[in-house]
Design a protein around this nucleic acid. Structure first.
Length: 271
DNA sequence: CGATTTTGACCCGCGC
DNA sequence: GCGCGGGTCAAAATCG
């Protein structure tokens, strides 16, 4: 039986460098996947915008009296994507100013947490709660309590198909600035703002250190839901990978070393 | 004591 | 016209 060779300082340093290399490689991989997802959503966004303008052109080209009879494949496919079965409704929404603006937020929560609270940068006052027919969990109604005149409302309800997911529906736009962090009482409840997608403001943020979250104006979520396996899988894979990595103490140590190494290369990055 | 939550009553649009 | 269901109101309770 041979005794294990004791590592010299050089060997330890070499092993650490190796770990840092692995950590960097993993980071690069995650960055690449993040970029890929961003591009995917950008492409979908562009396609959606193109379809919108195409549809608007079609709609404005035909008179309102004709529009009921002259259905085109383009209109049908648009309705399928938009998920709105009412052509009239769609027509009105495109012609009128689309107010109130509606967006949906999906928040992954602890299933044991029964609170209907979705944390965000605004302060909300609850004014009602109802049990709805399509969902056994209650729906909570909130109004923005920052300004009495602020028309924004929020509905929060657990997803019927997955009770661990909170669905917050925002209606309208705030007529005031958002709360800065630390101002006002921060509500308890779910915190997870991680993957946000907004069609009204085409920005995409993937925070891979947290759980799943996305935000949209309704159409996009329906599109995602209809093509859920294709779109959601890579997001979940990235989340799982991030979760595994962040839980691994070796990775965290190596990451800290890599970051401190990077900092020393870029002293200007320090605060 | 003011702000917020709870909860039953009420309102209103929609389908039959 | 009626009933149903989603949304809102408002008084009482609770909280900080």
């Amino acid at each position: 039986m041979e005794t294990l060779p004791k590592g010299t300082d050089e060997q330890i340093v070499s092993a650490n460098k190796h770990e840092v290399g692995i950590a960097r490689a993993k980071l690069n991989q995650i960055s690449k996947e993040n970029k890929m997802l961003t591009e995917m959503v950008s492409i979908m966004q562009a396609n959606y915008t193109a379809l919108c303008s195409q549809f608007f052109d079609l709609v404005t080209a035909i008179s309102p009296s004709q529009k009921r009879k002259s259905r085109t494949p383009e209109i049908d496919s648009f309705n399928q994507i938009g998920g709105d079965p009412s052509e009239d409704c769609l027509f009105k929404r495109l012609r009128e100013d689309p107010k109130p603006k509606i967006s949906k937020v999906y928040v992954q929560t602890d299933p044991s947490d029964s609170s209907l609270v979705v944390k965000d940068e605004y302060r909300w006052r609850k004014y009602g709660q109802k049990i709805t027919r399509d969902n056994p969990s209650p729906r909570a109604y909130y109004r923005c309590s920052f300004a009495p005149t602020c028309p924004v409302k929020k509905k929060v309800q657990r997803a019927a198909e997955d009770q661990s997911i909170l669905v917050a529906t925002y209606e309208g736009e705030h007529e005031h600035g958002q709360f800065s962090q630390g101002v006002g009482s921060v509500q308890s409840g779910s915190l997870p703002y991680y993957v946000s997608i907004s069609s009204s403001c085409p920005t995409i943020t993937l925070d891979l250190t947290q759980q799943g979250f996305w935000r949209d104006d309704g159409k996009f979520s329906r599109l995602i839901e209809s093509t859920l396996p294709e779109f959601r899988r890579p997001v979940l894979q990235v989340e799982q990978m991030a979760s595994m990595l962040t839980k691994d103490p070796n990775f965290r140590t190596a990451l800290a070393a890599a970051i401190s190494g990077g900092m020393s290369c870029h002293p200007s990055a320090q605060n």
